[in-house]
Amino acid sequence: MAVAETNNIISPAQGRPSALKRALSDGRLVTVLVFLPPALLLFTLFVTLPLIEAAGYAGYKWSGYGDPTEWVGMRNFEILQKHSAFHQSLMNTVWVIVASCLLQIPLAMSMALLIYRKTWSNTVFRLIFFAPYILAEVATGLIWSFIFDGDYGVAAMASQALGGEPFFPLSDRTWAFPVVLFVVVWKFFGFHMMIFIAALQGIPEDLTEAARIDGAKPGQITWFVKLPLLKPAIAVSVFFAVIGSLQLFDLIVPLTNGGPSNSTHTIVSYLYTFGLTRLKVGFGSAVGIVLFLITVAFAVVYRNTAMKET
């Protein structure tokens, strides 16, 4: 009886082609074999191996010359944990994230709502607002360091006009980091604005017209119709803002180089200053590992929460 029953069952292999045969016949296997190895090779060479190496160096006291020989275990991480400048750089990075999310993105959203419609004047404004993003970050930092220079810049002109003492905001512990935040917002809001403009242009006109007929005023159309439909764009924008904030470096060096008194370092500028320029590659690798873990943790959590819903 059991044999008869077994004979009646059609095995998957008999009933339909195996997964391998199907992959071969529809060309998927060939596609995978052609495209995957180069990508895997490049990713391994330029991402995975350096990461593993950096993780290895983090356990050494090493200047970057010769082979790392002085194994110190977790010592670099212990120094990092106790270093006040690192704490400051972490806090500063948090502040950059806060400014990006609470100032930059709302500003970008407001500007996008004002100029998303396709008119020639809006195109001009879009170009103007997007221009800072096109500028190289080092050039941006230099330009703003001149502007905020107390001897020649706009800061000098302002203090002269007001009849006060020369004012050097970038050398002032109170003002230096707010100035950095201002430049960050100025530099990157155009990028987020463009994301929102693209998303706003994708909202069907019918929806806003239906809302108008329903009695919604412009502000209510924005609040009840447009903003909810922009959620996916906002989620992407916040993701880029946070990842960008965690990687912020090029603006800091020409603006303040982390000063005064290490008060304006971000994690990356801290890594560069205390790791590379002081020839402590092992220590710098430890900072890199911490930054990598923070970034991966954020990316994983965010993609599985905020971006999953969108």
Partner: peptide
């Protein structure tokens, strides 16, 4: 007059339902 003040209601070809 504003659309909302005309005493009209409109049904669109695309339905124009608020997806959220």
């Amino acid at each position: 007059a504003d659309p909302a003040k005309r005493g009209i209601a409109m049904v669109f070809q695309s339905y124009a339902l608020y997806p959220h």
